[in-house]
Computed example of a mutant assay.
Amino acid sequence: MHKTLWMVLSLIVITACSSTFPDWSISPPQDTSNLFITTGSGNNLESAKSNALEQLSNRLIVDVANTTLTNNVKNAQNQVTQSIESYGVLNSEQFSFINATVLKSQQVNGVVHVLMQVDKKSVFDSIHNYLDIQVVPLIMSNQDSAQIISNGVLLWPQLTKVEKYVSLLTQHNQDKRFIKSQLSNFKEHFINILSETDISLVVGATQAQHKSHQQSSQLININDRLQLQYQSLLTKKPNASNKVEIIILGPTISYFDQAPIHAVKIEAQQVVTYNKKIVVQRPITAFELGDNKDSVMVAAQNNFVNQLSLGSK
């Protein structure tokens, strides 16, 4: 009796699922040697496609944004020991997929389902392009201590993301430039120097600047966001041999509000000093335009913060 009832209930569940999702959505085809296959659902075709690509992003790479407390100590044998307390927050890494094609679409009970394919080469090419422009110049060999520490400071906020990208390439045998080895060597040298380096962060106005700069810094919450990004580096070492300052001069914010057009421009100067010598000095400019004031401001803030790490010096 119980066995019969269980079989009936299972049949009802299977039938209900089948009537809600197409078969190819429940059991999608496997990836091929050249293509990623993904499915998604939404209220319309565009939202279903967006969901499918988001699902693929989640499957390919998860960016673990860690808040870490790092303590580097060098012992008598010149070996560095590192203790880390990590509090992870999972965030999907969003790719800009090129050549994404809808293979099938079906609407069931008002919900649109799609089956899509994405060319693997386009994904790997995009990652290689990012790494070649933003990362490889920072991790090249034959750097002195000042170069390693300044490049490490620029790389640090994006390091976990970069490592995930490199891991993805390695997993699919696409690390043709041996970036994984270069990154590992650079990170080892950086951590060794870091054990003898005190790093501090200065954001906003100096005494010679206007109060409006301080208000701008508070408005876009830049100080808190950078404190979070660099938290694991900002460990006080009173007896450190080296001192690094990460300085953000500004920022200033310009607005244009004339519906339906809204625009925000955020500007600042980024300076990194190593033992009071300037090793990085560059302007940072973020500009966003759109028809939603709040969305434009958020996009400009994110653009600004992202530019403070990596990029050409």
Rank of each mutant, 00 (worst) to 15 (best):
M1F: 12
H2R: 11
S10D: 13
S10I: 13
L11P: 00
L11Y: 11
V13L: 11
V13F: 10
T15D: 10
S18F: 02
S19C: 05
T20C: 08
F21P: 06
F21L: 10
S25D: 11
I26Y: 12
T32M: 09
L35N: 15
L35S: 11
T39E: 07
E46M: 11
N51L: 00
E54Q: 12
L60A: 06
N66H: 03
A76P: 01
V80T: 13
E85P: 00
S86N: 05
G88K: 10
G88R: 09
F95K: 07
F97R: 01
I98D: 15
A100L: 08
L103F: 02
L103R: 04
K104H: 13
S105A: 00
Q106K: 03
Q106G: 01
N109E: 15
N109T: 13
M116K: 01
V118M: 05
K121F: 03
D125G: 02
D125Q: 12
H128K: 13
H128I: 07
Y130Q: 14
I133C: 01
P137D: 07
P137T: 11
I139M: 07
I139E: 09
A146G: 04
I149H: 07
L154R: 12
L155C: 04
Y165V: 02
T170N: 15
H172G: 04
H172L: 07
N173A: 10
Q174P: 00
K176T: 03
K176D: 09
R177V: 05
F178W: 11
I179H: 01
K180Q: 12
S181P: 00
S181Y: 11
F186H: 04
S195R: 09
S195K: 10
E196T: 13
I199Q: 08
V202F: 12
A205M: 14
A205E: 15
S212P: 01
H213R: 15
Q215R: 14
Q215D: 14
Q215G: 10
S216Q: 09
Q227G: 01
Q227N: 14
L228K: 14
L228F: 13
Q229E: 14
Y230R: 06
Y230H: 08
L234M: 10
T235Y: 15
K236M: 04
K237P: 00
S241N: 14
S241D: 14
S241A: 14
L249V: 10
S254M: 11
F256L: 05
P260S: 09
P260I: 01
V264A: 09
E267L: 05
A268G: 03
Q270N: 03
T273L: 04
K277F: 07
Q281K: 02
R282L: 00
P283L: 01
A286Q: 08
F287V: 08
N292K: 07
K293P: 01
V296P: 00
M297V: 04
V298R: 15
A299K: 15
N302R: 15
F304M: 03
F304V: 02
N306P: 00
N306Q: 10
Q307M: 01
